[in-house]
């Protein structure tokens, strides 16, 4: 089967800055795909290369098997991009920009019912004739989503759609993205809310400093993380931990001690034994399975620390 997006050997240099250093992966058709990475990892750059907004220094991107440089018309028809920045032409109303955008894709009046449906689904119907300048940030975000979907693209790329969005709208956007996915669209999502990706995405790629550091199904990625957390509520915070435990401390705030234990190498029994040996009392304890955030941190920030 043809991949929705196929990225091969992509390099992007901005002068001396190497934003992408040989990125190579595929986004399967019909998947809900997460693209994660810390600030400046190169996520937006990669998305802009897919969209033809930025030209790769080296390498190719194919959208449904159309090279973005050579078969750009087909590639752009297949792609709907929701950009990270909230920038819209303030000259027009919501309905007008949507009609114009649909026109640029070669769609005329026949597309009006779809535009109206988008306005309805995104809860913008009552703002249809409002000038874009007069919309709040969250409304603008919804207009950006409508703009990206106006030509019914099979692949939808959302670059941090939930940044600066309130809880309610975030729920609406999740539901909306899920619906699109159910209808067969391929969804590519970038976000800094890791739990959002964990909840929504079937497959996740993690970029760090322009390189792919992980690519797997979300569940596999989680299982691959060899640690779990032991959370203890101490009765007294003024304690000296035994040396064997000190490098296992994930956090120690007030009375709450969180230890990061290797699933195979560390035995909980031994840990508790050594705590008791050091005369450290605790009132409560429980273990936690790692979340995607722990995996993410271990692959990105920790890696930096090791260098």
């Amino acid at each position: 089967m043809v991949a929705a997006v196929s990225i091969s050997h992509i390099y992007k240099h901005y002068g001396n800055l190497h934003a992408l250093k040989g990125v190579d992966f595929e986004i399967p058709k019909g998947s809900f795909f997460g693209l994660l990475g810390p600030n400046g990892a190169g996520k937006s750059t990669l998305i802009n290369i897919m969209a033809g907004l930025v030209r790769a220094t080296q390498g190719t991107v194919r959208i449904l098997d159309h090279d973005v440089r050579l078969q750009w018309r087909q590639a752009r028809h297949a792609l709907g991009i929701v950009p990270q920045e909230l920038a819209i032409d303030p000259f027009f109303t919501v309905h007008e920009v949507l009609r114009l955008q649909s026109g640029y894709f070669g769609l005329g009046r026949e597309n009006t019912p779809w535009i109206d449906e988008l306005l309805h689904v995104l809860n913008l119907s009552d703002k249809a004739n409002t000038n874009l300048q007069k919309l709040s940030g969250g409304m603008k975000r919804r207009v950006l989503i409508a703009l990206a979907l106006v030509h019914k693209p099979p692949i939808v790329v959302l670059d941090e759609p939930t940044a600066g969005v309130d809880v309610e709208l975030r729920q609406v956007l999740w539901e909306f993205a899920n619906d699109l996915h159910q209808k067969g669209h391929t969804i590519v999502l970038t976000t800094h809310y890791i739990e959002e990706a964990e909840r929504l995405c079937e497959k996740i790629a993690i970029l760090n400093e322009g390189q792919l550091v992980a690519l797997d199904n979300t569940s596999v990625l989680l299982a691959r993380y060899p640690y779990r957390l032991l959370r203890l509520s101490l009765t007294c915070h003024d304690v000296i931990l035994p040396t064997g435990l000190q490098d296992k401390v994930q956090s120690f705030l007030k009375n709450e001690l969180v230890l990061r234990l290797h699933k195979e190498k560390d035995q909980i029994g031994e840990i508790l034994e050594s705590l008791r040996g050091a005369n450290i009392q605790f009132s409560d304890l429980h273990t936690e399975e790692p979340g995607l955030e722990d995996v993410f941190l271990s692959l990105t920030s920790r890696e930096k620390g090791k260098k």
Binding site: L53, R76, L79, A87, D89, Q101, Y104, F105, G106, L147
Partner: peptide
């Protein structure tokens, strides 16, 4: 104006040569 405001990208995303 559209270049400065960033709305130019809506002209760069569609299939216009």
């Amino acid at each position: 104006q559209s270049k400065m405001m960033g709305s130019l990208i809506f002209l760069l995303l569609p299939p216009l040569s």
